[in-house]
Design a protein around this nucleic acid. Structure first.
Lengths: 255, 255
DNA sequence: CGGCTTCGTATTGTCGGACAAACAGACGGT
DNA sequence: ACCGTCTGTTTGTCCGACAATACGAAGCCG
């Protein structure tokens, strides 16, 4: 039988409420920062019960388009990158992506980031990276701190690249892959010093605005991660494990 | 004044309900596909009112962790890539990212994708790309169809790369950037044939499993997009316009 | 005996109303 | 100008109710 009718979808009222409000925001008729009407007002506008309005609001609340300030009042809002990235990380985790997939993606994104950063980095950003480097040098014997500094280092570079799309694209992968350095370093005496050297070289390349060198060193650095990962007895083709995912947030607090 | 106390956050009950369920899913205690208890059961377990439970469920529903099948019953679910990508696109749109940011990111991700695809593409995937190519050739005078085929072409390559992380990373950017080809081609007589040539070359490189050639041609292809964009009188540093965003979905239907 | 229909029950979607807590803004006192 | 108080508003939570729909079991017919 031919497809005579297109599929009819009877969405519940709360969904329609959410869609209507979302449309207002996406189309720009409600500016970010502007207040959404009170529940009572929405009840009147939509002609539905307050419970229904509230359920619709909950749908949007999670998507980041709506935010509550201290007073619990609702404002239209720009979705926060950190929240989005965390959400994507969780999705990748649930889909059981492999470390190989993370590795390949990280390679592409980090190299692209550092090459752009070499062109655009500002003195304060360079200074921030130097600070990170100093702290890294002081924490060579603490894998936990080292792993956090490593994450920060790459985030700083991404920021210096001056590209928010690239920044958002790399963040979820970064959240999943960098925590593993902690485990890698716990059984690798030479690992920390190799990390420090790579970071130093990257900093130098950035300071010299040497796009080419920055890219090459980043590539080596990421390859080094893979080698360390394999040396730690892990297989690239195993799915990301939940164990590492301390930092994946749920409702503002750690999982 | 020093930060003496850490910020105290009193989350509403519906938020706690949502967090609790989310934790169950993320930790694996509830498997994807498994049913979430009925509202009545959750009311009993959490000791809160049904309205509260429902609001909590709405929070999760939007995040894709929970899905309703035809019967409206709730199942734990893996977040859909398409939905996530669409959501990210919308966020980028609201943040008014520039075409330059999209361009740079696309360059990195598409080149990486095609290089991997050259190694891993399977005969059926190659065939799908050949089909796309044939349809492209038949639609050279219709910018609208051409733009859709272009989007599909690159999605096929990303799929052939066999990397879900990379695939998800490029999807949001792709959703924003490829629709512009329609506008570009409307004033560019030679554009469509250039697109076809690039796609043909890419297909040939993939068929030959030539990683290097595939990367080079993709790079040229993306640069070509930029040139066309500028030739159409547009500035790379302008924010993405909502006008192009027909395909950004809200609640299952187009915006 | 198997397939189909029918009917009762379970579950969700929506509604109405109610109340406590927290907040914003106005008011008045010092 | 600063401080505390008061009041109306807004949100969070609860209770109860009912219609629509889906599911599952019982019954019917071939």
């Amino acid at each position: 039988m031919a497809e005579r009718f297109e599929r009819i979808q009877a969405s519940p009222a709360y969904q329609l409420v959410a869609d209507a409000i979302e449309r207002e925001i996406l189309s720009g008729r409600i500016q970010p920062g502007e207040r959404i009407g009170t529940e009572a007002a929405l009840v009147e506008q939509f002609g539905v019960n307050r419970s229904t309005v509230r359920e619709g609001i909950r749908l949007l609340e999670q998507s980041g388009l709506i935010r509550r300030d201290s007073s619990r009042r609702l404002y239209a809002s720009l979705p926060r990158y950190a929240k989005l990235a965390s959400r994507i990380s969780r999705a990748l985790l649930l889909h059981e992506v492999t470390f190989r997939e993370l590795y390949e993606t990280t390679m592409a994104l980090e190299v692209a980031s550092v090459r752009l950063a070499a062109e655009r980095i500002t003195p304060p950003q360079l200074q921030a990276i130097a600070d990170n480097l100093a702290r890294t040098e002081a924490a060579l014997d603490d894998p936990r701190i080292l792993s956090e500094l490593d994450t920060e280092f790459h985030a700083l570079i991404a920021e210096a690249a001056g590209n928010r799309v690239l920044q958002l694209a790399r963040e979820p992968t970064s959240l999943l892959i960098y925590p593993t350095t902690q485990v890698i370093f716990e059984g690798s005496p030479r690992g920390p010093s190799r990390l420090l050297e790579a970071h130093s070289r990257l900093h130098a390349a950035l300071a010299a605005r040497d796009r080419q060198a920055a890219g090459v060193w980043m590539e080596r650095h990421v390859v080094d991660w893979r080698k360390g990962f394999e040396r730690a007895g892990k297989d690239l083709d195993t799915p990301v494990e939940r164990v590492y995912m301390d930092h994946v947030m749920v409702g503002g607090s750690r999982l």
